[in-house]
């Protein structure tokens, strides 16, 4: 043990100043902690509220059964869970290849061309666009032309929503790949294609996957884009060309019904949705956290 000394190397010349500095440091630290707790407060209260109201009804039935008719009790919302999963998958099928390939083009093939700047600019603009606009667009482009509300239309709306997310995170991921890997690859006579597919993309994959997971949780939680593209359905999904139920629209619909059981169902659907989104996020963090180099 070191003997406590009144003056040591690190003590400031005047004891008084040091005391005030310590006091100020303590105060500022306390303030920061208090403020961080304040930001956590809404999040924590949402989670508590959703769990408290949603938990009572949680059972296997929720996942395997259809919703009861208004006024009746029993049943669940298996069709809405299915619908959400189907539409998220459709949106991924559309947005993932497009997003990654665009990112490869603007970052690898033509980083300084006007086309790339335009794509980058538009993608950034699109991230800020209200999600309902994506719904309106898909309504006009798919629902109006096909004369049908459908899971496809919902998937398209969600795809437009997540395309910029995937594109921009993929671009970041590609930019993060060390130049020395590219040099090494070109240095042994690889073509740009080989360099991108064998070296750059595999190295960027974890970061790209994180972006995709982010997009999944975003798409699963959105109501506005699916509200008037997929509409809703009381039945199990049998085809992607029909109106389709989704968790978010179910919450929106049931919460405004005057029946206690439906309102409870809406709470449970919220809990399921929050769990789904949180799990995807945690999974993304765990599986695809950047490996140490």
């Amino acid at each position: 043990m070191m003997k406590p000394e009144s003056r040591h190397f690190f003590s400031s010349p005047k004891g008084k100043t040091s005391f005030y500095r310590m006091l100020r440091n303590r105060f500022l630290t306390g303030l920061c902690i208090a403020l961080s707790l304040l930001t956590l407060f809404p999040l924590i209260s949402i989670v508590i509220l959703v769990i408290r109201n949603g938990l009572p009804l949680i059972s296997m039935n929720l996942f395997t059964q259809l919703s009861p008719a208004p006024g009746l009790e029993g049943g669940g919302f298996g069709n809405a869970i299915m619908g959400t999963l189907v539409m998220v998958c459709i949106s991924l099928l559309l947005a993932v290849p497009l997003g990654i390939l665009s990112a490869v083009y603007i970052n690898e093939y033509a980083p300084v061309s006007p086309v790339s700047s335009a794509v980058r600019f538009v993608a950034k603009l699109l991230t800020g666009i209200p999600s309902i606009i994506c719904g309106v667009f898909a309504f006009a482009a798919v629902v109006m032309t096909s004369q049908h509300f459908s899971a496809i239309a919902g998937g398209v709306a969600l795809a437009i929503l997540i395309l910029p997310i995937i594109l921009l995170t993929s671009e970041q991921a590609l930019m993060g790949v060390s130049v020395s890997y590219r040099e090494a690859s070109y240095g042994v006579g690889a073509t740009p294609f080989q360099t991108i597919w064998r070296i750059v993309l595999p190295d960027a994959m974890p970061a790209i996957m994180t972006g995709i997971m982010l997009a999944v949780s975003r798409a699963a939680g959105e109501t506005a884009p699916v509200l008037f593209t997929a509409l809703f359905s009381q039945n199990w999904i049998t085809s992607v060309f029909e109106p389709t139920a989704s968790l978010s629209v179910l919450i929106y619909n049931f919460a405004s019904l005057p029946y206690a059981y439906h309102i409870k169902l809406a709470w449970s659907a919220s809990l399921v949705l929050v769990t789904l989104v949180t799990l995807t996020n945690i999974l993304a963090q765990m599986i695809f956290s950047p490996k140490q180099r």
């Binding site: 090494a184 240095g187 042994v188």
Partner: peptide
């Protein structure tokens, strides 16, 4: 240029093995 680089090996200042 691809064939040229296959005929000429290069070693860089900072070692850069692929991951």
């Amino acid at each position: 240029v691809i064939a040229l680089r296959r005929r000429i090996g290069m070693v860089f200042q900072k070692s850069n093995p692929f991951p």
